[in-house]
């Protein structure tokens, strides 16, 4: 099918875009990479009255190195970010997770900000954003505000961004420790499909290989990505399959995953547990490897 009619605005700078949003609010849809919006418009499932095409706003298309974070403008393409962080071990989790987004042909166009603002609970970028403790910079005519990822997602396809606001940039926090290990695991029906369940993990361990920090995020298991609590119970312990397994059993019991064609809630809990286990194991292994590397230096 073909899109319905709309009024089309193409602002050249941020203030122009913000005043349009201020004027039209809920009637307007922002067109960034279009990889989620255009299919919906093609099926006429979305028939926005107004399209605000932000592709002409150069100032939100940059990646900037900041002291504590990487500032990624809302218009930065997923592929561009993946390439930017490609060789830097610090951003390994981002790289691992982003490899699962759609296909290169859609990552070439899809934007980092667009995916996060779209807030599909089974998409990779929202999960990464949450797990990596990112921060959203939201602009409006009334000024900018910053929202930590943990407060950003509200429901399926819903975030704290108000109709008059625009996601200006996403700040990716640099990992505090050089020995942090990263893991990402996803179950999808086919390569490139949205996750039935996905897990992202950041693990830090001490010289005795005891957990000192665990950050675990789960995707596809609820209306928003989920940051798992209670990892601190494992601090001071070393890896054991049983230890992790029983913790994850408790964790997944507490989830309220959706029912769809691919998986019912029970099965999805199972998958989430398996994905979490696998991602934690990779993260632990990678942290371990970094310690080994350090001993050999």
């Amino acid at each position: 099918m073909k899109p319905a009619l709309f009024d089309y605005f193409r602002p050249q700078n941020l203030p122009e875009a913000l005043s349009l949003l201020d004027e039209f609010g809920t009637d307007a849809k922002i067109l960034a990479g279009g990889q989620s919006l255009i299919p919906l418009m093609n099926m006429r499932l979305a028939q926005p009255r107004i399209i605000i095409d932000i592709n002409g706003i150069a100032e939100i298309g940059q990646i900037r190195e900041k002291a504590e974070a990487l500032e990624v403008g809302a218009l930065v393409r997923q592929r561009a970010l993946a390439r930017y962080v490609h060789t830097d071990g610090m951003w390994e989790l981002l790289r691992l997770g982003m490899a699962h987004i759609g296909h290169p042909q859609t990552r070439n166009q899809g934007t980092v900000g667009g995916s996060i603002a779209h807030a599909d609970p089974s998409a990779e970028l929202p999960l990464l954003f949450l797990t990596m403790d990112g921060e959203a910079e939201i602009a409006s005519l009334r000024g900018n505000r910053k929202v930590p990822a943990e407060q950003f997602f509200q429901f399926v396809f819903s975030t704290v961004i108000q109709p008059h606001e625009l996601l200006r940039a996403v700040h990716w926090k640099r990992p505090a420790s050089k020995t942090a290990g990263f893991g990402f695991y996803e179950f999808s029906r086919r390569a490139g499909d949205f996750a039935m369940a996905a897990a992202a993990a950041i693990v830090e361990i001490d010289a005795q290989r005891r957990f000192t920090s665990i950050r675990l995020g789960l995707g596809g298991v609820g209306p928003t990505p989920v940051l798992v609590q209670g990892g601190d119970m494992l601090y001071g312990r070393t890896w054991s399959d049983n230890l992790i397994g029983s913790w994850l059993e408790d964790v997944t019991k507490g989830l309220d995953p959706p029912q769809d064609l691919a998986a019912n809630p029970d099965f999805r809990r199972r998958l989430a547990g398996a994905a979490a286990h696998k991602s934690l194991f990779s993260a632990y292994q990678s942290a371990n490897g970094k310690w080994e590397g350090r001993t050999h230096e």
Binding site: R10, G34, I38, I51, D53, Q105, Q109
Partner: peptide, 21 residues
Amino acid sequence: GACTVLIDGAAARSCLNLAVS
């Protein structure tokens, strides 16, 4: 993927782009 073309040299879906953009 049948409609894939190069946009500024990068492979992309032509059905997921408004020409005006």
